[in-house]
Write a protein that binds this DNA or RNA. Sequence first.
DNA 1: GTTTCTATTTTGATTAGTCAAAATAAATCT
DNA 2: AGATTTATTTTGACTAATCAAAATAGAAAC
Lengths: 220, 220
Amino acid sequence: MATIAVENYLKHVLLLSEGGDDLVSMGELAAALAVVPGTATTMVKALATEGLVSHRPRYGVRLTAEGRRVALGVLRRHRIIETFLVEVLKMDWTEVHAEAELLEHAISDTVLDRLDALLGHPATDPHGDPIPTRLGKLDSQVYATLATCGIDKPLRIVRVTEQSGEFLQFAEQHGLRPGAKARVTERNLAASLLTLKMDRDRTVTLSLSAAGHILVAPVK
Amino acid sequence: MATIAVENYLKHVLLLSEGGDDLVSMGELAAALAVVPGTATTMVKALATEGLVSHRPRYGVRLTAEGRRVALGVLRRHRIIETFLVEVLKMDWTEVHAEAELLEHAISDTVLDRLDALLGHPATDPHGDPIPTRLGKLDSQVYATLATCGIDKPLRIVRVTEQSGEFLQFAEQHGLRPGAKARVTERNLAASLLTLKMDRDRTVTLSLSAAGHILVAPVK
DNA sequence: GTTTCTATTTTGATTAGTCAAAATAAATCT
DNA sequence: AGATTTATTTTGACTAATCAAAATAGAAAC
């Protein structure tokens, strides 16, 4: 039985390895978990002897098949709980992340399956993040971001990959939520800024780094 | 911030002191928490220095006002979660106790208040146990039990004070659930048995000790 | 009023997770 | 290549919660 700490380590290794590089560094991992690097090293070594990760000392860590299975379970719980909090309890999508962080380690499979059914087996959570299936399949579709997409093409926001309350509240305030329509009108690399037009001609300006967290798909 | 272990100790001191005796013994407490007695002693001493209980060494332990406040919070969470699991997720009232035991330490006040509102601010959980209010008021109405009530009087079951799955499934199987109507037809002290008539002339026999866990009120 | 029984407390160890700070290895820069 | 910077690992220490087993204090029995 994985402890809460173990579940969190595995979840964060999964999330950090999503974005490309194969091995997750101790630095990244320690920062994500808000522990000191030495703690991450110690824990990773323990996880490695349990067969949940493989550790290449001095280079980084990666999930084993078993570790990935556990991590996907945690992620599934997290995202179903977030969806429940928004859809049923009508909480704000900008504030449910922290709540789900707590509950994801305490909910049983029975309760989770009931929630999933109540919600109609959703494919994504309120941020647009894909929900792993019971069988451990995770949709890995790659989207463009506002920082990388074409200019003046009609777009639909599909996902916002940032959990911080401030960022999400900023996004919500300007209508940058999953499902919203948008169009990039100008991208200024020198100033690292980007301008876009939302519904009803609302204009929004944001930094390229922020834009990188907003995933979009072309509107057919 | 109280840890999970601290919350559990305080909750069990509260539950064990409900049934009468002022001081809760280390033996009872250790048994309720499934730890060895020495562990309970150690923990209780720590709780005492935190001002959450007062410990009379060799005699027992009692909650302070602050400890009671914390314990009532845990109990409120537990019972609201149980109610949610039955009313919204349609789980069986005989199986929700263990689930709530896990979730009660992970749910925030925000989520709890939303659940409470969704459920219409219930006064009791599915077992008939009273739910402490946000302000820490706990209904302490005293009921007769099937072991102590009068013979041949029409009764309504108001509460079942046993959490074990087996007991509850037995109760459910024979219609002994909160709200059901019943009438004691015979009480045999020698054999420590009791017979009662339920709806549609169903007859049920159970031990006096089991009967002591089924609380009843006279039907007006 | 001793002795005996039983519950409680104490003592010494263990496990999980963490931090601070010293040691070390890899990468980078002359 | 040698020196410096930076990330990682190691070491030693700490906290919370637990157990096993020895010591002890009340209560009950004689």
